[in-house]
């Protein structure tokens, strides 16, 4: 169950040598970007992972300790 992600990805044009389209106000240099991309997205993995993990745990806790504890329903 990967929601067709792989297929979409393989359809993409992978060449990316050309610089971003002209945006004179974009102050980010390629070197700086290359540098941060050595660590990105580790922080995003940690943050999003923690948030989603907490969410699933909180949901499970409510499911078991409140919903199931209140008795059957049908």
């Amino acid at each position: 169950m990967n929601f067709g992600l792989g297929e979409f990805m393989s359809n993409f044009d992978r060449s990316s040598d050309s610089p971003p389209p002209g945006d004179t106000l974009d102050p980010i240099t390629d070197a700086a970007l290359e540098d941060v991309l050595k660590t990105v997205p580790q922080g995003a993995f940690a943050l999003a992972g923690a948030a989603m993990g907490l969410l699933v745990l909180a949901w499970l806790a409510v499911y078991v300790f409140i919903f199931l504890a209140r008795g059957p329903i049908s």
């Binding site: 700086a32 970007l33 941060v36 660590t39 990105v40 997205p41 995003a44 993995f45 999003a48």
Partner: peptide, 14 residues
């Protein structure tokens, strides 16, 4: 949340 988290991480690290 991951993609925007990573976008923000780029900004924060820059």
């Amino acid at each position: 949340i991951f993609t925007i988290g990573a976008s923000m991480e780029i900004a924060g690290r820059l």
